[in-house]
Structure formats: C-alpha cells, structure tokens
Computed example of a mutant assay.
Amino acid sequence: MTRRILALLAVVVALLVVGAAPALADFHLVNSVPAAGSTVLETPGEVKIIFDQPVNDVASSVQVTSSGSVYNDGVVTVEGGNTLVQPVRRLSSGNYSVSWTAASGPGAPSTSGKFGFTVSAPADRSAGTGQWIVVGVLAVIVAALGSTLIRRRLDRRNAATPRK
C-alpha cells in the first residue's frame, strides 16, 4: 500500500513540476512591428511586441524613445493575449529605441529587453508644391505683361502707319 501512495505522490509531484514549468519560464520576444533593426518608410501609429506566452498589460510596459524624448501616446494594451501594443505619437525620420518589460500578471516573474528601428520617411512633397504654385503665378504674370507690351507696340505701329 505504501508503494502505491509513494508512486501516486511521485506522479502528482511530476505533474506539478511539469505544469509549473511554463509559468516559471522566461518570456521570449517572438516578433515586433516594426521589426527589430528594421527601417520603415512611414511612421507607425503603434509598436507591437509579440511574445511566446500570454502577457498582462497591467504588469507590462513599453517605452518608445529617441534622443531622450518619449513618444508613447496612451497606455499599453494587450492584443490576442500575447501581444503588447503601445500607441505612439507621429515619428519623424530618425532612430528609435523600444524598451519593454513583460509579465503574465502582477507579482509574476517578468523579463525585459530592448530593440531599435529606424524611420526613414520620404521627403515631404507638400513643401515643393508651394514653390510650383509661385512659379506658375509668376509665369502667368510674365505672359500677361509680355502680351500687353506686344499689343501696345503693335497699336503704336498701326497708329503711325498711314492708312491707304
């Protein structure tokens, strides 16, 4: 009988150890959007960090920085159970750093990390539009003045020429 109890206790302990292992394991970053080390052409509205385990927004944090400024715009939320989503303000061209801490809940073991990405936004084309409007207006003015001068010269020539 004691052998059965010992065997049963061994099975229970083994199940507890195996069942608790995932809860004690470290979080691992699986992916991010923007991807770590990537260059994006448009400013992202948010940064997403995807983990291999469920995360808790209350026990987790994300901070997006560049040159000492923080670009977070609101609080971090969880999407799909394992993705932290941090809204960000409009990012201009430059290098950005993302620091994160992730945990499954308050008081649970956490892990943290850091990665970077670059925003390389194309040149703002709206500034050039204003220049072309000015050039167009000047072209119309020059054409109007030119045609007025030509018309006056022709009128003088016609007035000086006797009619037959």
Rank of each mutant, 00 (worst) to 15 (best):
I150T: 01
I141G: 05
V11W: 03
D124C: 03
V55Y: 12
L8G: 10
Y96T: 00
G116N: 12
S92D: 11
V70T: 14
N82R: 13
R4V: 06
V88D: 03
G37H: 08
I133M: 01
D57P: 09
V13F: 15
G81V: 03
T65K: 06
T65D: 04
V135G: 00
V17S: 08
N56L: 12
V13L: 15
T101N: 04
A127V: 15
V119R: 00
P106D: 04
T111L: 04
G45V: 14
V13Y: 05
P122R: 11
A102S: 06
A108D: 10
A121N: 11
G37V: 06
I133L: 05
V142K: 09
A103Y: 05
S99N: 12
A35S: 08
L29Q: 10
A123Y: 09
D57C: 13
T129R: 13
N72H: 09
T148M: 13
N158E: 01
I141T: 10
G68T: 06
N56P: 00
V12H: 01
S126M: 03
A23Q: 11
R89S: 15
N31E: 11
P109T: 11
Y71K: 15
G128R: 07
L154V: 01
G68M: 06
N95C: 03
V18Q: 03
N82I: 09
Y96Q: 02
A25D: 14
F51G: 03
V75H: 06
W100H: 02
W132Y: 04
Q63V: 14
L138F: 14
D155I: 02
A14D: 05
A143P: 13
Y71S: 12
T39M: 13
A123G: 06
R163I: 12
R3T: 02
N31K: 07
F117N: 01
N82V: 13
E46I: 12
V58Y: 13
S97A: 10
M1I: 00
L6Q: 08
S104T: 04
T118V: 15
P109H: 08
G81H: 10
S38H: 11
A7M: 02
G116T: 08
A7F: 07
V33Q: 13
R90S: 15
R151N: 04
S32C: 11
S112T: 02
A127L: 14
F117P: 01
G105N: 10
P34M: 14
T39R: 14
A102Q: 04
A160G: 02
V75M: 04
A144P: 01
V142W: 15
L145N: 06
I150L: 07
G130T: 09
S112W: 03
D57T: 11
V55T: 11
L29F: 05
V85R: 08
L149M: 10
T111D: 14
I141A: 12
A21I: 01
A14G: 12
N158C: 00
V62G: 01
T161D: 00
V64S: 02
V135S: 00
L9S: 01
A14P: 05
N82L: 07
S93G: 04
T2H: 02
A7C: 06
F115H: 10
A7S: 09
K114R: 13
V64W: 06
